[in-house]
Computed example of a mutant assay.
Amino acid sequence: MNTPHGADTFTCPEFLAMERTIIDDFVDCTREACEEAEVCVKELNNGGGTAYIHRLFRAMHSLKGNCQMVGLGPFTDLLHRIEEIVARVRANQDPYFRELGEFLLLANDEVEDLLNDLIAHGFTSDIRRKKLFDLCDALQKNSAHGFQPQHFKDAIALLDGKAESNDTVSKPQKVVLELPADMELMRKFAAHIDNLSIYRKNRTDQVAQLTESLNEALNFLVDAEQLKVASLMHDVGMSFIPHSIFNKEGVLSKEEVKKIQEHVVTSSQLLLRFGGWDEAARMVLDHHERFDGSGYPNGLQGEQIHPGARMLSIVDTFCSVTNERSDRSYKRSLLSAISEINANSDSQFDPQMVEVFNSVVRKLIAKQ
């Protein structure tokens, strides 16, 4: 459906009118399906068997079905065309090859971008949607003798050039040298760190919402604005850590651990540079201290740790567990996370705050 913003855009009123919790659930399911597709493509590129083809098809089918369920008709049609490509491989009509998998991942990224744009602005680019639809259509029509790697290479090149699409070129934006509000800039920094890993999608927003709830349950023990800023900025220093360490799987060396630990200093120093956020800077500096004194960077203990940092420590660990990729349901993941928090009460976390956080999580589970 075209919008007042022009014939080059479309919107989905039925979807946008839904409750925010439903939209958030849809976003979570979409992210999980895209992550599953990424895992399957990676395994298939490394010689994985037909089981990964079936899993890939189910992931694409879930994406399409979820869109259909919430009234995203234009996305349903698009994802059906993408799904048809996987269906041919699943039915042994065509072989799987690396270029096909890379195209599917790029197509999923494009769908996610369009969905995020729709949610953020209420409309998104119909030119980009049609371009991807037409590419999928062309791949089908040009495959009378089977899918060819070169056809997918060409499609990848065309899709990867979306930054130069007509809607972007026809609407150049002027860059104005101006200083945005602190909170706006901090949100951009937080979004950047969240985009560096598939395990951090919307992580900072989750931390900010839960710390706000915990602070409220504690009768606003600390200043709400300072706590929000600390929640947004607590991990921004991680973006200065080399990617080889940030995304490393397995055991870190002592030097790598030291590099990771530096992020609390970097993040707090950035806040001091902003000015007016000294309390938030202290919360960020202390949020990896442990209640028993075995944390970093200063080995503080108990009440020596800023109360905002004690809240942030609990919530940050909780969100870390619930954002891990696994086959568990969301509700079970919540229970696993709160079990870990309770198991470390009085050693890692403030036991009184843990008790209050339990009630916050119970309300969260009830909503789910």
Rank of each mutant, 00 (worst) to 15 (best):
V251Y: 06
P95Q: 09
K42L: 07
H61T: 02
N358T: 15
T50C: 14
S62P: 04
Q368I: 09
N108M: 12
T322D: 00
A190F: 03
Q348V: 13
D223P: 03
S359M: 06
Q352K: 14
P297G: 11
S143E: 08
M283T: 04
V360A: 10
S294D: 08
E279T: 10
E164Q: 15
A281H: 01
R362C: 03
E35R: 13
K201M: 00
A280W: 03
Q206G: 09
I341A: 05
T3S: 15
K201C: 00
N323M: 01
F147G: 06
S231D: 01
P172V: 06
Q368K: 11
G275L: 03
S347L: 14
E36A: 14
L232F: 05
A17W: 04
L115S: 09
N298G: 10
G299E: 02
D154N: 11
F123D: 00
G295I: 05
G65V: 03
H287P: 08
Q352P: 00
L232E: 00
E355M: 14
M353D: 06
R58V: 04
V86S: 07
V175T: 12
E249K: 15
L56M: 05
E340W: 15
A230M: 04
F291Y: 14
V315E: 14
R20P: 04
E164S: 14
T211P: 03
L159T: 09
L104Q: 03
L78Q: 01
S231F: 02
G146S: 10
